[in-house]
Structures are given as structure tokens and as C-alpha cells.
Amino acid sequence: MQIFVKTLTGKTITSEVEPSDTIENVKAKIQDKEGIPPDQQRLIFAGKQLEDGRTLSDYNIQKESTLHLVLR
């Protein structure tokens, strides 16, 4: 499924993921596309910071959901 990751600069990254993918996994995909190390990434969805060990389905993230990427 496709999800969108919006950066603070307003850029939107499209990523191909599975509901069973972990947040860590998603951060790795963002690193592949943007070159941002996962340890600098914080992903936010519905006002919550997403934890690395959890999966997209844990957070009820569905296709075409938009996550927000904040850098630390």
C-alpha cells in the first residue's frame, strides 16, 4: 500500500509499505529516498509519535495515510 510522509519543508515523500511493516522499516525506506538517518527521524501520526518496534497496523495506519516527519 502507499503512504505519504510529509516533511517540515512541505515536501511529500510517497512510500510503498505493508501494514505489517515496522516503523523502523518505514524509517529505513525514508533513509533510502532522502538520506536521512533513522535515528534523526521522528514520525508522527494523528498527533502521536510512532515507536520503532510497532507496526503500521498497530497504529491503524491505512493506505494513503499521511505521516509527518520531524527531524531531531
Rank of each mutant, 00 (worst) to 15 (best):
I13A: 02
I61W: 01
G10P: 00
Q41F: 15
I3P: 01
R54K: 13
L56N: 03
P38Y: 13
E34Q: 06
E34C: 15
V5L: 08
S57K: 12
F45T: 01
L67S: 00
K33D: 06
G10H: 04
S15R: 06
D39M: 09
D21Y: 08
R54F: 11
S15M: 15
L71V: 12
Q40N: 09
M1E: 03
L50Y: 01
E34T: 15
N60R: 07
L71M: 09
G47W: 05
Q2P: 06
V26N: 01
T12R: 07
E51A: 08
K48D: 06
S65K: 04
F45W: 09
N25A: 14
T12K: 07
I44T: 09
T22Y: 08
Q49R: 09
V5H: 00
T14G: 04
K11D: 07
L43A: 00
Q31L: 11
L56H: 01
E64S: 11
E24K: 12
V26W: 01
T9R: 11
A28E: 09
D58A: 06
P19A: 08
R42I: 15
G10W: 03
H68C: 10
L67F: 04
E64N: 15
K63T: 13
L50T: 02
R72S: 12
K11E: 08
T7V: 08
E64H: 14
S57W: 09
F4R: 06
D58K: 02
Q62P: 09
I36M: 05
F4P: 01
V17N: 03
V70P: 01
T66G: 02
D58E: 11
T14P: 06
R54I: 07
I61V: 09
V17M: 05
D52T: 05
T55M: 10
L43F: 05
S20V: 05
D32H: 11
E16S: 10
S15H: 13
L56S: 00
E18D: 12
P19L: 10
T66M: 11
D21A: 06
P38D: 05
Q31E: 11
L8D: 13
S20I: 06
D32L: 14
D39P: 06
L43E: 02
A28S: 11
K33M: 13
S15F: 15
N25M: 15
Q41D: 02
I30C: 02
L50N: 01
L8M: 13
A28K: 15
P38K: 15
K29D: 06
E24I: 10
H68P: 00
I13S: 02
I30W: 02
T66Q: 06
K11Y: 13
K33F: 08
T12Q: 06
V70K: 08
Y59E: 03
S65D: 14
I3K: 00
M1V: 07
E18I: 11
E24D: 07
Q31I: 05
K48C: 08
D21S: 08
M1L: 06
S57M: 11
P38C: 10
Q41M: 15
L43H: 00
Q31V: 06
L67G: 01
N60V: 03
D21L: 05
Q31C: 13
Q41P: 02
K6A: 07
G35C: 05
G47Q: 04
T7F: 15
M1K: 03
E51R: 08
K11R: 12
D52C: 05
R72V: 14
D21R: 00
L69G: 00
G47N: 06
G47V: 02
I36P: 06
E51T: 06
N60K: 10
K6S: 07
A28T: 10
Q49P: 10
L56C: 01
R42Q: 13
T55H: 05
A28W: 12
S57H: 10
T55S: 10
V17Q: 05
V17A: 06
R42S: 12
Q31T: 09
L50A: 00
T22G: 03
T14D: 04
K29H: 09
L43Y: 04
P19C: 06
V70M: 10
V26S: 00
D58F: 14
T7G: 06
I36E: 02
R54S: 08
E16L: 13
A46E: 14
T9Q: 13
D52I: 04
E16H: 11
L56K: 00
D52L: 04
Q40Y: 08
S65F: 09
I44S: 09
L67Y: 00
I36C: 04
E34D: 05
E34P: 02
R42D: 11
Q2S: 10
G53W: 14
L50G: 00
Q2A: 09
L56M: 05
Q41R: 02
K27V: 05
T7C: 12
I61K: 00
Y59C: 01
D52R: 04
V5G: 00
D39C: 11
L69M: 09
K27L: 12
I23P: 02
T14V: 14
D58V: 03
D39H: 12
D32S: 11
H68V: 13
E16D: 11
V5S: 01
K63N: 15
E51W: 06
G35H: 07
Q40A: 10
K27Y: 06
P37V: 06
L8W: 15
N25E: 12
E16G: 04
S57E: 12
Q2G: 06
